[in-house]
């Protein structure tokens, strides 16, 4: 049992480290976010599971699972919120960025994003910017 816990902790810590490395080395905001959110959330979750297994007591296991759930739930939402805010306030992108599909679909004033599939009624209001 302990070996599994040890392995999980090491992998988890490794992922968090990679997350940190990504945050440091990635050129612009969006790319950094990939690293920190995905690697971080995974790393945190693994460590949580490891600790849950280490303390065999079900009460603690429930809490560690709760930690896993919350980490995995909140990290992306936080990243989403800050990415959206960054994008709208015009944070510069990496000069080698090729595609930015969001730009055409975006109504910058109202902060509304349209998938382009809405009926014509909605589309007109968007076009006037």
């Amino acid at each position: 049992m302990n070996t599994v816990v040890a392995i999980l902790i090491l992998i988890g810590a490794g992922f968090i480290f990679i997350g940190g490395l990504g945050a440091y080395r990635m050129p612009d905001m969006m790319l950094r976010m990939h690293a920190t959110t995905k690697a971080g959330a995974l790393g945190g979750g693994l460590v949580a599971i490891a600790v849950g297994l280490y303390f065999a007591d079900p009460a603690y296991l429930v809490r560690t699972i709760a930690i896993l759930v919350f980490v995995v739930l909140t990290a992306p939402v936080a990243a989403h919120a800050i990415a959206r805010a960054g994008y709208f306030t015009g944070v510069p992108f990496w000069e080698k960025t090729l595609k930015d599909e969001l730009r055409e679909k975006l109504d910058t004033k109202g902060h509304h994003i349209y998938s382009g599939l809405e009926s014509n009624g909605d589309v007109e209001t968007r076009r006037e910017d």
Partner: peptide, 16 residues
């Protein structure tokens, strides 16, 4: 007043 994004609103409703 402008509210948060849809994702944020659903998370909030779930987390509260």
């Amino acid at each position: 007043t402008p509210m948060g994004s849809l994702i944020l609103r659903t998370t909030a409703r779930l987390l509260l």
